[in-house]
């Protein structure tokens, strides 16, 4: 029941974040979505994810506010507003319909299959010595995943260093 309330709160905050005109208010609303997600992870028995989501959300908010401060501009509505909105909403309704068809085939909430992970749960502590099974999975059983993650983060840092290397020139009128 708490999860339903949290998800409804997240949907409400997401609508505010998308629709409000002021950019700073929008960034703060997306921060509310992130902290509600942190609480949801805590209810779903994932304390590792809750800690990580909390600190990542703080850093993400600092970077977003750094990008948007003193730079708000009003949203302009012009042209084919009705046609664009209706076509987007129709696409989303189609997406929701097919998603509903797909969701019926999944296992019900609260009863996962756990075919792969049974072996990890039985042998995890004996074979790795780590008590925290999430750490045992990401650094021992599936360490290739973490290596790929390190590569992606490294590429992202290189990309940011390249994009922000020297001040850009402002186009002359």
């Amino acid at each position: 029941m708490e999860l339903h309330i949290l998800l409804l709160f997240m949907i409400f905050a997401a609508i505010i974040a998308i629709e409000v005109k002021d950019l700073l208010s929008s960034v703060i609303a997306v921060g509310a979505v992130g902290f509600a997600l942190c609480l949801a992870f805590l209810i779903l028995k994932a304390p590792d994810l809750a800690i990580t989501q909390l600190v990542v959300e703080i850093l993400c908010l600092i970077i977003l506010i750094r990008a948007t401060i003193k730079r708000d501009l009003p949203l302009v509505i012009e042209g084919r507003w009705v046609f664009n909105t209706i076509s987007t909403l129709a696409f989303i309704c189609l997406f929701l319909f097919f998603a509903w068809l797909a969701l019926r085939e999944l296992p019900r909430f609260g009863e996962p299959i756990m075919a792969v992970v049974k072996k990890y749960l039985q042998e995890g502590e004996g074979r790795t010595g780590a008590v925290n099974l999430v750490t045992a999975i990401i650094l021992d059983f599936r360490a290739y995943d973490t290596l790929g993650e390190a590569t992606v983060l490294f590429t992202s840092v290189i990309g940011i260093m390249t994009v922000l290397r020297r001040p850009g020139r402002i186009k002359k009128k």
Binding site: A46, D48, L49, T52, Q53, V56, V116, V117, Y120, L121, L133, V134, I137, I138, R142, D145, T146, G148, E149, V152, L153, S156
Partner: peptide, 13 residues
Amino acid sequence: PLPQALVLTSIVI
């Protein structure tokens, strides 16, 4: 714990 391990890397990415 398997989805949690996958999501943990996904958050930082």
